[in-house]
Nucleic acid binder design. Structure first.
Lengths: 215, 215
DNA sequence: ACTTGTCCTGTCATGCCGTCAGCTTACCGC
DNA sequence: GCGGTAAGCTGACGGCATGACAGGACAAGT
């Protein structure tokens, strides 16, 4: 699957080279979570990795290129998010559980990949196709099975057929993504983090089924 | 209200100085909407404004400082968003209209200030208090009156009292903000922009009233 | 030990950053 | 109109990040 790892000038990287490369990626990830994206410099990353800027440029064209690498790694991990929706039931009480677990799982994933997702989101918003595609991969991993679930319910007459399934799923995933991104904002509105799930989960349930959540 | 405009070294700016300053801000705003934030350089802004980098540094400590200025201007404009909720009715049919106008108005404001809001959002997510506060100002201009509306309905027994009003309002505003930020994403899900309002508006209505939207 | 290919770094040209001294311009009182 | 004063602008400079290259260090096989 993973093609040969190559340096910028075309050589194939050996064992030691891959280690160095990985160390650079790790340090970059670390830097991203501690300083503003705009201020992340190659020289800092190199220093932290105990190597020189020249080495960095051997493996990556620039900071953005390395960030893309990290982002793609994360996008691969995001397949695990499918499990939050696939094969789950939306009927009655179990629907409540499904929506709660979806909210929980999604927020956890976002929090885990906080820093890199911030940069991906920015890149996507700025119109960069590569970042946009990565963001899509992550969100689609939930949005697609969710849209399928809505279509299923519509077919069984258990959900509002007038709603576009993909639009519903997209809106709900956006809601989750945005809530995940700005958890700090909620506290300033006097909302405790623990209030977030009880609020989001019913919204998801409502969006999917078109019915008020049972209690 | 607005104190004297001052240069970095303390001089008060006169007519000509203010013009230059404003031209720099305009050019920066332009640059932000055409190139990635990370790549916006002082020298480019200065060149576009037909002046020198040194002049830029006379009015702003750095790029971020100037961006903050633009953002604060925008935050002032955001008071107009209050009107989208204040004094509106959520009962029956008129509730549907209210939610639709809220969605429309909010999306329009966000689209108008696209570029600067992107940077504000990034800064806030990275933990910068100044950007965070500005983002709060914008979102609060809708979230506060919306929370009041929910409390009102709760008091009248027309909404679910178990929900925290502020949390509901916060989640809904986050939903709108996120949808506004990533309109392009929706099209890749096969969702037409015009499908967005019919999807978001009922979600808002549902969130506020806890009832399924009438049609 | 020698060869081969990978890996790292010293060094250099280039370009942006951020500051300062000093020159020019506008305004004001006389 | 004349000089004084403060505002406005820029050339120039040290400093640092970028990105390219060539050559030295190193590991592995022979």
């Amino acid at each position: 699957m993973t093609g040969q790892v190559r340096t910028v000038d075309g050589r194939v990287a050996g064992r030691r080279g891959q280690e160095t490369r990985q160390k650079l990626l790790d340090c970059l990830r670390e830097m991203l979570s501690t300083s503003p994206y705009r201020d992340v410099k190659v020289i800092d990353v190199a220093r932290m990795a105990g190597t020189s800027p020249a080495t960095f440029y051997q493996y990556f064209p620039d900071v953005e290129g390395a960030v893309l690498e990290i982002a793609e790694e994360m996008a691969k991990d995001s397949v695990e998010l499918k499990e939050l929706v696939d094969g789950k039931s939306w009927a009655g009480k179990s629907g409540t559980t499904t929506s709660e677990e979806l909210v929980d799982g999604f927020l956890a994933f976002w929090r885990k990949n906080d820093a890199i997702l911030r940069v991906v989101t920015l890149g996507a918003a700025e119109g960069d196709k590569r970042f946009f595609k990565i963001r899509m991969t992550v969100l689609n991993s939930v949005a697609k099975p969710l849209a399928d679930a809505v279509k299923d319910l519509q077919a069984k007459g258990q959900a509002d057929k007038a709603q576009d399934a993909a639009a519903v799923a997209g809106s709900l995933i956006s809601l989750l993504a945005s809530a995940a991104e700005h958890q700090k904002a909620f506290t300033s509105w006097g909302v405790k983090i623990k209030d977030l799930k009880p609020t989001l989960a019913p919204l998801v349930y409502l969006g999917v089924t078109g019915k008020k959540a049972p209690r």
